[in-house]
Simulated scan of single mutants.
Amino acid sequence: MPAKDIYHNTVKNALLKDGWNITDDPFILKWGTRDLYIDLGAKKLIAAEKGEQKIAVEIKSFIGASPVANLENALGQYILYYDILNRLEPNRRLYLAIRQETFSDLFEEPIGKILLENQRLRLLVFDSEQEVILQWIP
């Protein structure tokens, strides 16, 4: 099993504060002979008539030397998880959890804006000090 991201517990606490129930830590995807590990699985009761919303969250710290290389690696992992999750649990939404600083550094710039405009990924933006979710995109 892979090591947990340095912000694993921060995001977990932020989700709990936001009313989510952590169901899997990690959330295991079995595909063929491989096991893949998304950091967290969670669910939330939306309303009695709407049922539950289910998510999977991959957490990335983006602390390496190159923010663009970090983004490339995170996107590759996200796409792999997204495609497999779509087959196994099409009603569960995948999010990439990133710090507010990472969002400002990459996604308020043209390189990140194009990913958001093309709706290539869903982001969960969190405050690492307050342990709260700041934004869900989209």
Rank of each mutant, 00 (worst) to 15 (best):
A3M: 12
A3W: 01
K4R: 15
K4E: 14
K4Y: 10
Y7A: 06
Y7R: 08
H8I: 03
H8R: 08
H8V: 02
T10Y: 03
V11T: 05
V11W: 09
K12N: 09
N13W: 00
A14D: 07
A14H: 08
L15F: 10
L16S: 11
K17Y: 12
K17G: 05
D18W: 04
G19L: 00
G19R: 02
W20L: 07
N21P: 01
I22W: 01
D25G: 04
W31M: 06
G32P: 06
G32N: 14
T33F: 04
D35I: 04
D35A: 09
D39E: 11
D39C: 01
D39M: 03
L40C: 00
K44T: 03
L45V: 04
A48K: 09
A48F: 08
E49L: 01
K50L: 12
E52R: 10
E52F: 15
Q53D: 07
Q53E: 15
K54D: 01
I55T: 05
V57K: 01
V57C: 05
V57D: 04
E58H: 07
I59L: 08
K60H: 10
K60P: 01
S61C: 04
F62G: 02
F62A: 10
F62S: 09
P67W: 05
V68L: 14
V68G: 05
L71E: 01
E72T: 09
A74C: 04
G76N: 14
G76T: 05
G76P: 02
G76H: 09
Q77D: 11
Y78K: 09
I79W: 15
I79L: 11
L80N: 14
Y81S: 09
Y81W: 12
I84S: 12
I84H: 13
N86P: 00
R87S: 11
L88C: 05
L88G: 04
R92L: 06
L96I: 02
A97G: 06
I98Q: 03
Q100M: 12
Q100S: 10
Q100V: 06
E101I: 12
T102P: 00
T102G: 02
F103P: 04
F103G: 04
F103W: 14
S104E: 15
S104A: 11
L106T: 04
E108W: 00
K113M: 13
I114E: 13
E117Q: 14
N118L: 11
R120Y: 13
R122E: 12
L123Y: 10
L124G: 02
D127Y: 09
Q130N: 13
Q135S: 12
